[in-house]
Amino acid sequence: MSDSGKPPLPVTPDDVRAAFARIAPHVRRTPAWSLPRGFGHDGEVSLKLELFQHAGSFKARGAFNTLLSEAVPEAGVAAASGGNHGAAVAYAAMRLGHAARIFVPEIASPAKVDAIRRFGAQIVIGGPRYADALLACSIHIAASGALSVHAYDAEATIAGQGTVALEWEEDAGPLDTVLVAVGGGGLIAGMATWLSGRTKVVGVEPAGSCALHAALEAGRPVDVEVHSIAADSLGARSAGRLVHEIAAACVDQVVLVGDDAIVAAQRTLWRDFRIATEAGGAAALAALLSGAYRPRPGERVGVLLCGGNVDLGILAELTEAKS
């Protein structure tokens, strides 16, 4: 038991710090860009440009932490993914010399599937949705003995993703609030583990894919319907058990944004900064632009841009629609 009398959480700040040291030679230290006044807010906005990470998203952190923490069998590694996690696992496996098999759903973005293939992994279409790909991956792992690299609900994954917050805090200094997009929740669970007690952590989910919001309301992970422009990266049918446990203790708030707000954030990032983000990568900014999260006057707000694996043809259509 902890000093508070409550059971300890499954991932600790010490786990995040250890992961940071472990993966440092293998991941990029991504920029934190300070805007004195940004996006209609009168206070400082810090953009963490994690879309510049290897394989195009924060997921490389958890992938490397898992592969460097576990003994990898001859059968290699296996993962189920909407795209970004698969690309990250494929990249980490390639760099560390392991075979990888990635199970993706039919809705996976072609840009992300191409990235997985480029990093040398075997791709298996596991069914219509992420949950179907996860089931197919589980069957393969049971039969082959391959190492499972879970996208969000594993201690090593969560600790690895939490290194985003440690790095951001070192580079940008203390922030009052950080806005973090949520799919299965490994990222926000890791970041909240590190920031809890110092910085307000606000999750941002699409209204059509709100697994963590539903879990916190129900008091346990529950299945939700998934219908969102960001479903290929933020489309988990339910939050993980470990994620829910950490989020219930450490996440301050979860807000919902519509697909129109996400597209507007993508347009803003491209129009004003020439930053190309996927829908999931723009979701956190959508909360600030749309008013789903309203900061106090002068509040130092951090916005995580977590993924850049966007089909440039689709981005062009989105940006030209308002030109």
Rank of each mutant, 00 (worst) to 15 (best):
P8E: 08
L9C: 04
L9A: 04
V11H: 02
V16N: 00
A18T: 00
I23S: 08
P31V: 15
H41K: 12
D42Q: 13
K48M: 15
K48P: 06
L51A: 14
G56F: 13
F58C: 11
L67N: 05
L68W: 04
S69P: 05
V72P: 01
S81W: 03
G83V: 10
N84Y: 09
V89E: 03
A90E: 04
A93Y: 06
H98S: 08
R101E: 13
I107V: 15
A111M: 13
G126W: 12
G126M: 13
A136F: 08
A143D: 11
A143L: 12
S148M: 15
A151H: 09
D153A: 13
A156P: 01
T157G: 09
A159R: 00
G160K: 01
A172S: 14
P174M: 14
V182D: 01
G184H: 08
G186F: 05
I188L: 11
W194Y: 15
V201W: 03
E205P: 05
P206S: 10
S228A: 14
D232R: 07
D232K: 04
D232E: 14
G240D: 07
G240L: 12
A247L: 10
Q253N: 13
V254Y: 02
V257T: 04
V257Q: 02
G258V: 09
A261M: 02
R267K: 09
T268W: 05
G281T: 08
A282M: 03
A284S: 09
L285Y: 01
A286C: 07
L288K: 00
L289T: 01
P295C: 11
P295F: 07
R296S: 14
G298W: 03
E299I: 10
E299S: 11
R300G: 08
A316N: 00
E317G: 06
S323F: 04
